[in-house]
Design a protein around this nucleic acid. Structure first.
Length: 112
DNA sequence: AAGGTGACAGGGT
DNA sequence: TACCCTGCCACCT
């Protein structure tokens, strides 16, 4: 599989994240069963060139907004999430468990 | 050409 | 509980 396809799959999956929900780099890499969590970050880093990729809904396993410095402004990621109803405190998602969206559970039906 | 660097994660101490 | 170490893999010096 080419890198281009890998990136497209990351975008596809990221677009599936419901508003008000977030997921993690690890969950995405696990669902795609290839690459590593680092590659997900690498793919999302290129998402500026793609349309409609809600990269702000992807955080690290601790719920930290580790990618905020890669947005137009360092505060944009937090602003977008709060606008969608996700509370942020100290650059971390509050109650990550209740906002967490796991593609491995939610998307099984799509790919029987 | 070789080593360092990340939008990371999981296990060990 | 919190830190540290290691695996990860494409890209950049």
């Amino acid at each position: 599989m080419s890198n281009e396809n890998y990136v497209e799959q990351v975008y596809f999956l990221t677009r599936k994240i419901p508003i008000g929900k977030v997921t993690t780099y690890g969950a995405i890499s696990k669902f795609l069963t290839l690459g590593s969590a680092r590659m997900v970050g690498w793919a999302l880093n290129k998402s500026f060139t793609a349309e409609n990729v809600p990269a702000h809904r992807v955080v690290n396993r601790k719920g930290e907004l580790s990618g905020r410095n890669h947005f137009a402004t360092p505060t944009l990621m937090q602003e977008l999430l709060e606008k969608e109803g996700v509370t942020i405190k100290d650059n971390c998602v509050v109650s990550l468990a209740t906002h967490f969206w796991d593609p491995n559970l939610e998307l099984d039906d799509y790919f029987d």
